[in-house]
């Protein structure tokens, strides 16, 4: 077991290193930090541009191999992911932004998955009934609308409600705003700001997970063990709740483990639309701002998220499914 895990981690590390280096190569060749200085008004002296760029290891006049060496050695030796063209350390920026993303996505993804499981289970038990068809269609609709459209529409609706009621109940700029000094006011304020992005994430998550849960639930509803449970004397509902539901949660949880890790970068729309300064927004900004090191670091972080998600999903299966947990044997020819 230990050796196996070690091998697996090693493989992941290699994947991540290769992916990060490829991203660096691509970023260096595709982004042009010099253009940021060249368009400035009044014009900046070319020599000081060059000096600025060189000091941040961003000058395209330095040979590629030398830039790569500087970049990689500073990561290895100092865990320093470099500087943005305008100055400012990339690593520090990311450290701060990760927590913004965590605060943004946690509630929404949990609610989305929970609601999705409820709806999916409900639908599967009433397959082809009116409620099933309605939910199936709504889920399909949810997956067919680009997420920024959902977020934007929510924003418009919230504005209208605010206007009509003459309140500022819905907040949609940033994480915090003005709030009272009474106990809990700070928390309420944060929750108010979280409300809209959380609704958007919940809609998306519920649409996605209700489909998954419905499919796996239908499979386990018709499984032999549900029939056995009923033959023992359990009613249909008891058999479904104790046996089918429990088994169907295995694949759904795996998807969830995987999806929550990838949401860190995937929630970029929510961050931009609701002005949360998290990782997704940073990813977009670094590219728009020709920030080579920022883009590479974000890419590396995204890769890490994917691998963590994969590992988390595997552990989830191992935890929930005794067939995987215990050593089942198989041989191949």
């Amino acid at each position: 077991m230990g050796a196996y895990l070690l091998k697996r981690f090693l493989n992941y590390a290699i994947l991540l290193v290769v992916a990060t280096n490829l991203s660096w190569l691509l970023a260096v060749t595709q982004l042009n930090p010099r253009s940021l200085y060249e368009i400035s008004n009044p014009p900046i002296d070319p020599i000081s541009i060059e000096n600025n760029l060189r000091s941040r290891n961003l000058s395209d006049q330095v040979p590629l191999s030398e830039r790569w060496f500087t970049w990689s050695s500073s990561i290895i030796l100092d865990w320093n992911w470099g500087q943005s063209p305008r100055g400012g350390n990339v690593g520090e920026e990311i450290d701060r932004r990760i927590w913004v993303s965590v605060r943004l996505i946690t509630l929404g993804s949990l609610l989305g998955a929970g609601l999705g499981v409820l709806i999916g289970t409900w639908s599967a038990r009433r397959q082809y009934g009116l409620s099933d068809r309605t939910f199936t269609f709504l889920a399909l609709l949810g997956l067919s609308i680009p997420s920024f459209v959902i977020a934007n529409l929510l924003q418009v609706a919230a504005t209208h409600i605010n206007d009509i009621t003459g309140t500022r109940f819905f907040e949609f700029v940033g994480e915090t705003g003005a709030h009272g000094t009474w106990l809990g006011a700070q928390w309420l304020d944060r929750l108010q700001h979280l409300l809209l992005p959380t609704i958007a994430l919940t809609i998306l998550g519920a649409a996605f997970f209700s489909r998954i849960q419905r499919n796996v639930m239908l499979d386990s509803l018709h499984a032999g063990f549900v029939r056995t449970a009923r033959a023992k004397g359990l009613t249909r509902s008891q058999a479904i709740n104790r046996h089918a539901l429990r088994v169907s949660l295995i694949p759904t949880s795996t998807y969830f483990a995987f999806s929550i890790a990838t949401l860190f970068v995937g929630a970029a729309f929510m961050e931009i639309i609701f002005s949360f300064h998290g990782m997704g927004e940073y990813a977009v900004q670094t590219i728009q701002g020709h920030d080579v090191h920022g883009a590479v670091a974000t890419a590396a972080f995204g890769g890490l998220c994917v691998l963590t998600g994969a590992l988390l999903a595997d552990f989830m299966v191992a935890w929930l499914d005794p067939r995987v947990r215990s050593a089942s044997t198989s041989h191949s020819g």
Partner: peptide, 25 residues
Amino acid sequence: LSTLRGKTMAMVFQDPLSAMTPVYT
């Protein structure tokens, strides 16, 4: 029926692997 199944009449199914819930002992 569920008060009779397993109590008065019981059934042994054909495929013993799929007839048992995999996640319970």
